[in-house]
Design a protein around this nucleic acid. Sequence first.
DNA 1: GTCTATACATCGATAGAC
DNA 2: GTCTATCGATGTATAGAC
Lengths: 181, 181
Amino acid sequence: MPPPPLARDKVLDAFEHLLVEKGERAATMEAIAAQAGVSKGGLIYHFNSKDALVEGLDQRLRVRCEEDLELMKVAPEGQVGYFLRTSALADTPFDRTLVAATRLRSHAVAREGLVWVQRRWFDTLMEVVHDEDVARTVMLIGDGLYYNAASTALPDAGLGVGDIDGIVRLVEKLVGQSTAG
Amino acid sequence: MPPPPLARDKVLDAFEHLLVEKGERAATMEAIAAQAGVSKGGLIYHFNSKDALVEGLDQRLRVRCEEDLELMKVAPEGQVGYFLRTSALADTPFDRTLVAATRLRSHAVAREGLVWVQRRWFDTLMEVVHDEDVARTVMLIGDGLYYNAASTALPDAGLGVGDIDGIVRLVEKLVGQSTAG
DNA sequence: GTCTATACATCGATAGAC
DNA sequence: GTCTATCGATGTATAGAC
């Protein structure tokens, strides 16, 4: 049994941070090491290549996705409301990992991880919604919310909490009609 | 009057192509020159820095956006239908430029251009929908469609034409309720 | 106007001291 | 286990021939 990989986690946190705040091109090995507070050599000891770093992020993404789905299933506001609200503004560990993964467009591993997450979300939503069009629409709104939350580093351009409330209300009407009809 | 800038356009086409197909990190000056069929020196003659290239893309984005909005306003299927369908699968010049711009996350100029496009879309949709929640929801679905179309280089993971039809039908019901109620 | 050649910085990765 | 030093490849940008 290896000891708890605290340094590994610290490095992955730094990797995520740079990807989210500065984008893929800024997340160099050197910058990651500096952000994590270790040397380049120290980083390479834990992840001996950039690909290994991406794989570490992918594993973390899948683990945290499953954890989030468990929360979603027991959310008091319902699964659809939980899904939409966390898409927009939750700053959970899962969220940060997810947004970080969306920045790694050139890495096949990261793309596959994202497709896997979408599949897991879709299947879980279908357990409540029972209508593929509605489930797809909810998914798309979630994607849109993520896209906006992830891309808007500009002040004044994002959606406010009140905006989200209105959208959630609208979508829940849609879901209600589909399960009733 | 300078002669028509054919070479400039060819270089921007190459820049877009690489951004869309391979991502930001692959769109290097050398790769762009090769893709455009010119030398590195020839590229630099037209755009003397990478920032100049990004600015060229930003200008093209805004021009093509306005052209697209004119088409949207006279679309036979209605503005909402046009908006959603072109978000999903249109391979128009505007589309390629837009997706390319979404890849340039580290450049402030590109981010501002995208925010500007969103604002123009929102204002135009509001001319038809007259309800901010509905307009925002339509925008989000459009963002989601773009996000999916842009990110899925994987086979079998994207949305089909039939899926889009179902979603458009659902959204138009939503829009109809809002304008009726 | 477009090219070749090349300068200079920075990238990912290796070797080996401590 | 973490560091410094450094390599080869690749990035942006410049100088100057044609």
